[in-house]
Design a protein around this nucleic acid. Structure first.
Lengths: 113, 113
DNA sequence: TTAGTATATATAATTTTCTTATATATGATT
DNA sequence: AATCATATATAAGAAAATTATATATACTAA
C-alpha cells in the first residue's frame, strides 16, 4: 500500500475537495473509505491528517457541516459552500495542470541515440 | 506559474532522482533550470528546498559529488551512486503507480445518470 | 559607476503539514 | 472477553517546505 508514500504529501486538500465536488455530502470516515475503494486499496488517508484538514477548510469557509446520528453513532457531514465550489473547481483544474507538467519532467529522456 | 502549488510538496526527491537517472551528472542550479525548461516555466524549484535535499541524499549514500570550477564559479556536481541507481529506479516506478491511483480518485464520477 | 540580472551554493528561522499516538464511544463478530 | 469496524478528535513530535539572508563572480544597461 502506498499510503505512507511521500508523494501523498500536498494532495490531501485536493482529494477532499474533488470528492465533495463529485459526491456532495460526505463524512470523514466515508472519505477515507472512498479513497481506499477508488485507489484499489493503494491510498489510505490517515485520520490524524484528515480531520485537522477538514476543520481548517471549514474555518476557511470552504466547507460547511451538519451533524447527524446514524445507528447511534454521530456523523459529521461536510459539504462545499458556494465559495467552496469555486475553490474545488480551481483546485481540480490545477491538479491536472500540475500532473501534466510533472509528467513532462518524469518522462524526460536524454538525447543519447 | 505553479511553483508554489501545494502539490509540489513531496515531489522534490522524485524529481531530483529522475533527472540524475536520465541525465547523469548535474549541479543544483542546473536541476532548477532543467525543471523550469521541461515544465515550460510552470514548475520552479526553490534553492532553500533543493540544496538541503541534495545534501540529505548525499548523506544517505544515494548521491555522490564532485566539485569543479567553471568560469571562475564553483559547481558541485551530483550523480547517483550504485545504490542510488536502484533507489531512483524504484522511485520512478512508484511515481507512475501513485499517479495512476491519484488519477482514479481525481477522475471519479458519481452515478448521476 | 552603479544598479540589476544571471550564475552558483549554502544555511537558519519559521511555518506548514504529516505521522504517530492516544482518547472516547457504539455495534458486530469470533 | 477480545477484536474488528465504525466514527470523531486532538496533541506531541517529526519532516518538509517557504522565506529570508549571506556570499561571490560575470555581464549588461542606465
Amino acid at each position: 500500500m502506498i499510503s505512507s508514500n511521500e508523494l501523498l504529501r500536498g494532495t490531501l486538500r485536493t482529494i477532499v475537495l474533488k470528492l465533495l465536488y463529485e459526491y456532495g455530502r460526505m463524512y470523514g470516515y466515508e472519505i477515507t473509505q472512498k479513497v481506499k475503494d477508488l485507489s484499489g486499496g493503494e491510498i489510505q488517508l490517515t485520520f490524524g491528517a484528515l480531520y485537522p484538514t477538514l476543520h481548517k477548510l471549514e474555518k476557511e469557509g470552504v466547507l460547511s457541516t451538519t451533524s447527524e446520528v446514524v445507528d447511534h453513532r454521530s456523523r459529521k457531514y461536510y459539504e462545499l459552500t458556494e465559495t467552496g465550489e469555486a475553490t474545488a473547481s480551481t483546485k481540480i483544474e490545477e491538479y491536472f495542470a500540475f500532473i501534466g507538467n510533472m509528467n513532462k519532467i518524469m518522462s524526460a529522456q536524454s538525447n543519447i541515440a
